[in-house]
Protein backbone atom coordinates (compact mmCIF):
# COMPACT_ATOMS: atom_id res chain seq x y z
CA UNK A 1 0.00 0.00 0.00
CA UNK A 2 1.22 3.47 -0.80
CA UNK A 3 1.79 5.65 2.24
CA UNK A 4 -0.57 8.57 2.65
CA UNK A 5 0.32 11.59 4.74
CA UNK A 6 -2.16 13.53 6.82
CA UNK A 7 -2.27 16.06 9.61
CA UNK A 8 -3.92 15.47 12.96
CA UNK A 9 -4.52 18.53 15.11
CA UNK A 10 -3.70 18.31 18.78
CA UNK A 11 -7.42 18.33 19.71
CA UNK A 12 -8.21 15.73 17.07
CA UNK A 13 -5.64 13.37 18.55
CA UNK A 14 -7.54 13.34 21.82
CA UNK A 15 -10.80 12.76 19.92
CA UNK A 16 -9.24 9.87 18.00
CA UNK A 17 -7.93 8.32 21.20
CA UNK A 18 -11.30 8.61 22.91
CA UNK A 19 -13.16 7.12 19.97
CA UNK A 20 -10.76 4.19 19.86
CA UNK A 21 -10.65 3.59 23.59
CA UNK A 22 -14.44 3.57 23.94
CA UNK A 23 -14.86 1.04 21.15
CA UNK A 24 -11.89 -1.34 21.58
CA UNK A 25 -8.91 -2.25 23.72
CA UNK A 26 -6.23 0.40 23.50
CA UNK A 27 -2.85 -0.31 25.05
CA UNK A 28 -1.13 2.95 25.89
CA UNK A 29 1.80 4.19 28.02
CA UNK A 30 1.28 5.92 31.37
CA UNK A 31 3.79 7.23 33.90
CA UNK A 32 3.60 4.84 36.84
CA UNK A 33 6.29 6.40 39.03
CA UNK A 34 9.29 8.68 38.63
CA UNK A 35 11.29 5.91 36.99
CA UNK A 36 8.64 3.62 35.56
CA UNK A 37 6.50 3.91 32.43
CA UNK A 38 3.92 1.16 32.09
CA UNK A 39 1.49 0.26 29.32
CA UNK A 40 -2.10 -0.05 30.45
CA UNK A 41 -5.34 -0.91 28.72
CA UNK A 42 -7.58 2.06 28.04
CA UNK A 43 -6.15 4.66 30.40
CA UNK A 44 -7.74 8.12 30.33
CA UNK A 45 -6.23 10.32 27.61
CA UNK A 46 -4.93 12.75 30.22
CA UNK A 47 -2.91 9.93 31.78
CA UNK A 48 -1.30 8.81 28.53
CA UNK A 49 2.29 9.97 28.23
CA UNK A 50 3.69 11.41 25.02
CA UNK A 51 7.05 12.37 26.48
CA UNK A 52 8.62 9.13 27.63
CA UNK A 53 11.85 7.85 26.17
CA UNK A 54 11.20 4.18 26.81
CA UNK A 55 8.66 2.21 28.79
CA UNK A 56 10.12 -0.03 31.48
CA UNK A 57 9.00 -3.20 29.73
CA UNK A 58 8.74 -3.44 25.99
CA UNK A 59 5.31 -3.94 24.44
CA UNK A 60 6.04 -7.47 23.21
CA UNK A 61 3.53 -8.89 25.68
CA UNK A 62 0.66 -7.83 23.39
CA UNK A 63 1.78 -10.57 21.01
CA UNK A 64 3.86 -12.70 23.38
CA UNK A 65 2.34 -12.49 26.89
CA UNK A 66 4.58 -13.30 29.86
CA UNK A 67 2.26 -16.25 30.55
CA UNK A 68 0.15 -17.84 27.80
CA UNK A 69 -2.09 -20.89 28.29
CA UNK A 70 -1.65 -23.37 25.44
CA UNK A 71 -4.33 -25.96 26.26
CA UNK A 72 -6.29 -27.57 29.10
CA UNK A 73 -6.47 -31.27 29.82
CA UNK A 74 -8.42 -33.74 31.92
CA UNK A 75 -7.48 -37.33 32.65
CA UNK A 76 -10.15 -40.00 33.15
CA UNK A 77 -8.63 -43.38 33.89
CA UNK A 78 -6.92 -44.25 30.60
CA UNK A 79 -8.44 -41.43 28.60
CA UNK A 80 -7.21 -37.88 28.29
CA UNK A 81 -9.19 -35.02 26.86
CA UNK A 82 -7.45 -31.96 25.52
CA UNK A 83 -9.29 -28.67 25.16
CA UNK A 84 -7.63 -26.19 22.85
CA UNK A 85 -7.61 -22.49 23.47
CA UNK A 86 -10.13 -20.71 21.28
CA UNK A 87 -7.91 -18.32 19.40
CA UNK A 88 -10.93 -16.54 17.98
CA UNK A 89 -11.51 -15.11 21.42
CA UNK A 90 -8.35 -13.06 21.12
CA UNK A 91 -9.53 -9.47 20.92
CA UNK A 92 -8.50 -6.60 18.67
CA UNK A 93 -5.93 -4.37 20.31
CA UNK A 94 -4.76 -0.94 19.30
CA UNK A 95 -1.23 -0.29 20.45
CA UNK A 96 -0.94 3.44 21.01
CA UNK A 97 2.22 5.43 21.49
CA UNK A 98 4.92 2.81 21.06
CA UNK A 99 8.15 4.06 19.52
CA UNK A 100 9.65 2.94 16.18
CA UNK A 101 12.16 0.58 17.83
CA UNK A 102 9.41 -1.32 19.64
CA UNK A 103 7.24 -1.47 16.54
CA UNK A 104 10.09 -2.74 14.36
CA UNK A 105 10.48 -5.51 16.93
CA UNK A 106 7.18 -7.08 15.81
CA UNK A 107 8.87 -7.93 12.51
CA UNK A 108 11.80 -9.43 14.39
CA UNK A 109 9.46 -11.50 16.55
CA UNK A 110 7.62 -12.65 13.43
CA UNK A 111 10.91 -13.85 11.97
CA UNK A 112 11.26 -16.11 15.03
CA UNK A 113 7.67 -17.20 15.74
CA UNK A 114 6.78 -17.71 12.07
CA UNK A 115 10.18 -18.94 10.97
CA UNK A 116 9.32 -22.48 9.89
CA UNK A 117 6.05 -23.40 11.57
CA UNK A 118 3.66 -20.54 12.28
CA UNK A 119 3.07 -20.09 16.00
CA UNK A 120 -0.71 -19.75 16.03
CA UNK A 121 -0.89 -17.85 19.29
CA UNK A 122 1.62 -15.24 18.21
CA UNK A 123 0.24 -14.98 14.68
CA UNK A 124 -3.32 -14.47 15.88
CA UNK A 125 -2.33 -11.79 18.35
CA UNK A 126 -0.30 -9.99 15.70
CA UNK A 127 -3.19 -10.22 13.23
CA UNK A 128 -5.45 -8.59 15.82
CA UNK A 129 -2.99 -5.80 16.55
CA UNK A 130 -3.10 -2.32 15.07
CA UNK A 131 -0.02 -0.23 15.77
CA UNK A 132 -0.29 3.54 16.06
CA UNK A 133 3.35 4.41 16.57
CA UNK A 134 4.86 7.69 17.68
CA UNK A 135 8.21 8.95 16.39
CA UNK A 136 10.74 9.87 19.05
CA UNK A 137 11.26 13.51 19.90
CA UNK A 138 13.32 12.47 22.91
CA UNK A 139 16.24 10.04 23.32
CA UNK A 140 19.03 9.36 25.78
CA UNK A 141 22.50 7.86 25.98
CA UNK A 142 21.08 4.30 25.98
CA UNK A 143 19.32 4.68 22.60
CA UNK A 144 21.07 3.18 19.58
CA UNK A 145 18.40 2.54 16.92
CA UNK A 146 20.60 4.19 14.29
CA UNK A 147 23.26 1.52 14.88
CA UNK A 148 20.87 -1.31 13.99
CA UNK A 149 19.42 0.05 10.78
CA UNK A 150 16.51 2.00 12.24
CA UNK A 151 15.83 5.67 12.95
CA UNK A 152 13.75 7.58 15.55
CA UNK A 153 11.03 7.81 12.88
CA UNK A 154 11.27 4.43 11.13
CA UNK A 155 7.90 3.27 9.92
CA UNK A 156 8.67 -0.47 10.14
CA UNK A 157 6.03 -2.30 12.13
CA UNK A 158 3.63 0.65 12.44
CA UNK A 159 0.23 0.84 10.76
CA UNK A 160 0.12 4.58 11.39
CA UNK A 161 3.15 6.57 12.49
CA UNK A 162 2.59 9.93 14.16
CA UNK A 163 5.32 12.55 14.40
CA UNK A 164 4.87 15.61 16.57
CA UNK A 165 5.22 19.07 15.10
CA UNK A 166 6.49 22.09 17.02
CA UNK A 167 2.95 23.45 17.48
CA UNK A 168 1.73 20.22 19.05
CA UNK A 169 -0.08 18.90 15.98
CA UNK A 170 0.99 15.61 14.42
CA UNK A 171 1.91 14.37 10.99
CA UNK A 172 0.41 10.98 10.34
CA UNK A 173 1.85 8.47 7.92
CA UNK A 174 -0.83 5.91 7.10
CA UNK A 175 1.14 2.86 6.12
CA UNK A 176 -1.13 -0.17 5.91
CA UNK A 177 -4.71 -1.26 5.32
CA UNK A 178 -5.10 -1.62 9.08
CA UNK A 179 -4.03 2.01 9.38
CA UNK A 180 -6.54 2.99 6.71
CA UNK A 181 -9.27 1.24 8.65
CA UNK A 182 -8.46 3.44 11.67
CA UNK A 183 -8.63 6.57 9.51
CA UNK A 184 -11.98 5.52 8.09
CA UNK A 185 -13.51 5.41 11.59
CA UNK A 186 -13.26 9.16 11.77
CA UNK A 187 -11.84 10.55 8.52
CA UNK A 188 -12.67 14.15 9.44
CA UNK A 189 -9.89 14.10 12.06
CA UNK A 190 -7.27 13.57 9.36
CA UNK A 191 -6.62 16.80 7.48
CA UNK A 192 -4.33 17.75 4.60
CA UNK A 193 -0.68 17.67 5.49
CA UNK A 194 1.27 20.91 6.10
CA UNK A 195 4.88 21.80 5.39
CA UNK A 196 5.86 22.02 9.01
CA UNK A 197 8.75 19.87 10.10
CA UNK A 198 8.35 17.18 12.69
CA UNK A 199 10.42 17.24 15.87
CA UNK A 200 12.61 14.18 15.58
CA UNK A 201 15.42 13.48 18.03
CA UNK A 202 18.86 12.61 16.76
CA UNK A 203 20.46 9.36 17.89
CA UNK A 204 24.19 8.98 17.43
CA UNK A 205 25.35 5.88 15.58
CA UNK A 206 27.62 3.87 17.87
CA UNK A 207 28.60 0.91 15.71
CA UNK A 208 28.04 -0.65 12.31
CA UNK A 209 25.97 -3.78 12.79
CA UNK A 210 27.21 -5.42 9.61
CA UNK A 211 30.79 -5.09 10.78
CA UNK A 212 29.79 -6.50 14.18
CA UNK A 213 28.11 -9.49 12.51
CA UNK A 214 31.23 -10.07 10.40
CA UNK A 215 33.50 -9.87 13.48
CA UNK A 216 31.33 -12.29 15.46
CA UNK A 217 31.84 -15.02 12.86
CA UNK A 218 35.35 -15.61 14.27
CA UNK A 219 34.92 -14.30 17.82
CA UNK A 220 33.51 -17.38 19.56
CA UNK A 221 36.68 -18.18 21.52
CA UNK A 222 37.76 -14.57 22.03
CA UNK A 223 38.79 -13.67 25.63
CA UNK A 224 36.48 -10.67 25.21
CA UNK A 225 33.51 -12.61 26.58
CA UNK A 226 35.01 -13.48 29.96
CA UNK A 227 36.61 -10.07 30.42
CA UNK A 228 33.40 -8.23 29.64
CA UNK A 229 30.90 -10.36 31.50
CA UNK A 230 32.51 -10.81 34.92
CA UNK A 231 30.07 -8.29 36.36
CA UNK A 232 26.99 -9.96 34.82
CA UNK A 233 25.04 -11.45 37.72
CA UNK A 234 23.02 -13.81 35.53
CA UNK A 235 19.50 -12.49 35.98
CA UNK A 236 16.95 -12.38 33.20
CA UNK A 237 16.23 -8.64 33.33
CA UNK A 238 17.80 -7.92 29.92
CA UNK A 239 15.83 -10.67 28.20
CA UNK A 240 12.55 -9.82 29.87
CA UNK A 241 12.63 -6.11 29.10
CA UNK A 242 13.85 -6.83 25.54
CA UNK A 243 11.30 -6.32 22.74
CA UNK A 244 12.79 -9.10 20.61
CA UNK A 245 13.79 -11.83 23.08
CA UNK A 246 11.41 -14.69 22.35
CA UNK A 247 12.59 -17.67 24.40
CA UNK A 248 9.96 -19.39 26.47
CA UNK A 249 9.60 -22.27 28.86
CA UNK A 250 6.71 -24.76 28.69
CA UNK A 251 5.23 -26.08 31.91
CA UNK A 252 2.31 -28.22 32.99
CA UNK A 253 0.29 -27.16 35.96
CA UNK A 254 -1.89 -29.95 37.28
CA UNK A 255 -4.47 -30.07 40.01
CA UNK A 256 -5.78 -33.59 40.54
CA UNK A 257 -6.92 -34.95 37.21
CA UNK A 258 -7.08 -31.59 35.52
CA UNK A 259 -4.44 -29.29 34.33
CA UNK A 260 -3.14 -26.90 31.76
CA UNK A 261 -0.03 -26.38 29.75
CA UNK A 262 1.31 -22.88 29.50
CA UNK A 263 4.38 -21.10 28.29
CA UNK A 264 6.17 -18.28 30.04
CA UNK A 265 9.16 -16.08 29.24
CA UNK A 266 12.57 -17.62 29.72
CA UNK A 267 16.09 -16.23 29.48
CA UNK A 268 19.40 -17.56 28.16
CA UNK A 269 21.06 -15.67 31.00
CA UNK A 270 19.90 -18.25 33.53
CA UNK A 271 22.19 -21.15 34.43
CA UNK A 272 19.27 -23.55 34.24
CA UNK A 273 18.44 -22.57 30.65
CA UNK A 274 20.74 -25.13 29.04
CA UNK A 275 21.17 -27.58 31.91
CA UNK A 276 20.75 -31.11 30.61
CA UNK A 277 19.03 -33.89 32.56
CA UNK A 278 22.40 -35.65 32.72
CA UNK A 279 23.78 -32.76 34.74
CA UNK A 280 25.96 -31.53 31.88
CA UNK A 281 25.58 -27.86 31.03
CA UNK A 282 27.02 -26.72 27.70
CA UNK A 283 26.89 -23.11 28.93
CA UNK A 284 27.96 -23.58 32.50
CA UNK A 285 29.45 -20.15 33.19
CA UNK A 286 28.03 -16.66 32.72
CA UNK A 287 30.47 -15.58 30.00
CA UNK A 288 29.14 -18.34 27.76
CA UNK A 289 25.60 -17.16 28.39
CA UNK A 290 26.46 -13.53 27.69
CA UNK A 291 28.18 -14.59 24.48
CA UNK A 292 25.07 -16.53 23.49
CA UNK A 293 22.92 -13.45 24.02
CA UNK A 294 25.02 -11.29 21.70
CA UNK A 295 25.75 -14.07 19.19
CA UNK A 296 22.08 -14.92 18.88
CA UNK A 297 21.03 -11.38 18.16
CA UNK A 298 23.91 -10.27 15.96
CA UNK A 299 25.21 -13.45 14.32
CA UNK A 300 22.76 -16.36 14.39
CA UNK A 301 19.61 -14.38 13.62
CA UNK A 302 21.06 -12.47 10.66
CA UNK A 303 22.23 -15.83 9.30
CA UNK A 304 19.14 -17.92 9.98
CA UNK A 305 16.21 -15.52 10.19
CA UNK A 306 17.54 -12.87 7.86
CA UNK A 307 16.82 -10.28 10.56
CA UNK A 308 18.85 -8.60 13.25
CA UNK A 309 17.78 -9.57 16.77
CA UNK A 310 18.05 -6.06 18.18
CA UNK A 311 16.18 -2.81 17.59
CA UNK A 312 18.39 -0.52 19.67
CA UNK A 313 15.81 0.45 22.31
CA UNK A 314 18.49 0.35 25.05
CA UNK A 315 16.24 -1.28 27.68
CA UNK A 316 18.64 -4.14 28.41
CA UNK A 317 21.29 -1.58 29.29
CA UNK A 318 19.19 0.97 31.16
CA UNK A 319 17.45 -1.83 33.07
CA UNK A 320 20.60 -3.79 33.89
CA UNK A 321 21.47 -3.67 37.60
CA UNK A 322 25.21 -3.91 36.79
CA UNK A 323 25.43 -1.71 33.68
CA UNK A 324 26.06 -4.38 31.05
CA UNK A 325 25.90 -1.80 28.28
CA UNK A 326 25.26 -3.68 25.05
CA UNK A 327 26.01 -0.80 22.68
CA UNK A 328 29.34 -0.21 24.39
CA UNK A 329 30.19 -3.90 24.08
CA UNK A 330 29.17 -4.07 20.41
CA UNK A 331 31.27 -1.02 19.68
CA UNK A 332 34.22 -2.74 21.36
CA UNK A 333 33.53 -5.99 19.50
CA UNK A 334 33.56 -4.16 16.20
CA UNK A 335 37.11 -3.11 16.95
CA UNK A 336 38.61 -6.32 18.34
Amino acid sequence: METTRKLIRKQSLEKLYNILSTTRKVYAPVIASDKQVEYKYNPAFTDVTFDHIRSTLSVKNVVFPKVENLFYYTNKQTESTITDIDLNKIQDVVLWGAHPCDNAAFDTLRSIFCWDITDEFFAKRLEKLVVIGFSCHLSDEYCFCTSVGLTPNSTKGSDILLSRLKNGDYHAEILTEKGNAIVSISPELFESVTNEEAEITSVKQKFNHEQVTAKLATAFENPFWVANSLRCIGCGACAYVCPTCACFDIQDEASGKEGKRYRSWDSCGFGLFTLHTSGHNPRNVQSQRWRQRIMHKFSYMPERNNSLGCVGCGRCSSGCPVDMNIAEQLEALQNI
Binding site: E38, L57, I233, C235, S267
Partner: peptide
Protein backbone atom coordinates in the same frame (compact mmCIF):
# COMPACT_ATOMS: atom_id res chain seq x y z
CA UNK B 1 1.77 -8.45 40.06
CA UNK B 2 4.44 -6.42 38.22
CA UNK B 3 7.12 -9.06 38.83
CA UNK B 4 8.45 -10.67 35.65
CA UNK B 5 10.45 -13.37 37.48
CA UNK B 6 13.76 -12.21 36.06
CA UNK B 7 15.29 -13.07 39.44
CA UNK B 8 17.45 -9.94 39.48
CA UNK B 9 16.58 -9.69 43.21
CA UNK B 10 18.04 -13.12 43.82
CA UNK B 11 21.05 -12.72 41.55
CA UNK B 12 22.01 -9.38 43.07
Amino acid sequence: SKCIKCYACRQA
